[in-house]
Amino acid sequence: MITIDHVSKRYPGGRDALRQVSFTVAKGEMVLLTGHSGAGKTTLLRLVAAIERPTAGTITVGGQNVSRMGNRGIPYLRRNFGLVFQDHKLLHDRSVFENVVLPLRVTGFTAREAASRVRAALDKVGLLARERDNPVTLSGGERQRVCIARAIVHRPAILLADEPTGNLDADNARNIVALLDVFRQVGATILVATHDAEAFSAAAPRVITLSAGAFVA
């Protein structure tokens, strides 16, 4: 599903964020990218989501060469992804419902179908009762669940999650991992960047460790 082939990323100034990293993620697989801060986990996710381009190497997603994709194709590529951010990226001038419905608006769902899908997604993450609330009234764990609802509402083939359990207590972290595992079980491919592989042990994912931008194990 995702192939990373000898991918390197060098930032202006000469710092190497990734060096010759190669691995594949099969359809329906959950893979953890672990390592210390600055290991290149987030950079790798950003390259897969075509937020940045690799300096060298090839990234293929579902047969498409992401690293050589033209700018016009990138929005359509990103519609195949569900993105979960450590900082949630929720819009605080919108309700929970309005936040979750955004990917469906982008892809042109009718209002009725979108409402139905948003409620189903919020139900899955246990926040249906909070659909009218503003995200600022939610706890950190609840915000992360809203973020996950937004990531899955359009039923993407691939979930990219950057530190989804960061800053959460053990209970909330466990709930998030359980949610991600449910999506994996229904066929989603999940790539997670985390410094806390222990929190994901219940889902028994494959773990890839990076150190200073290089593949370790």
Binding site: A49, P75, Y76, R78, L102, P103, V106, T107
Partner: peptide, 16 residues
């Protein structure tokens, strides 16, 4: 700005 950046991340085209 936040909304525009998020929209780009979730696949919104420039036209959208």
């Amino acid at each position: 700005r936040d909304e525009i950046e998020l929209s780009k991340l979730i696949g919104a085209t420039d036209a959208f």
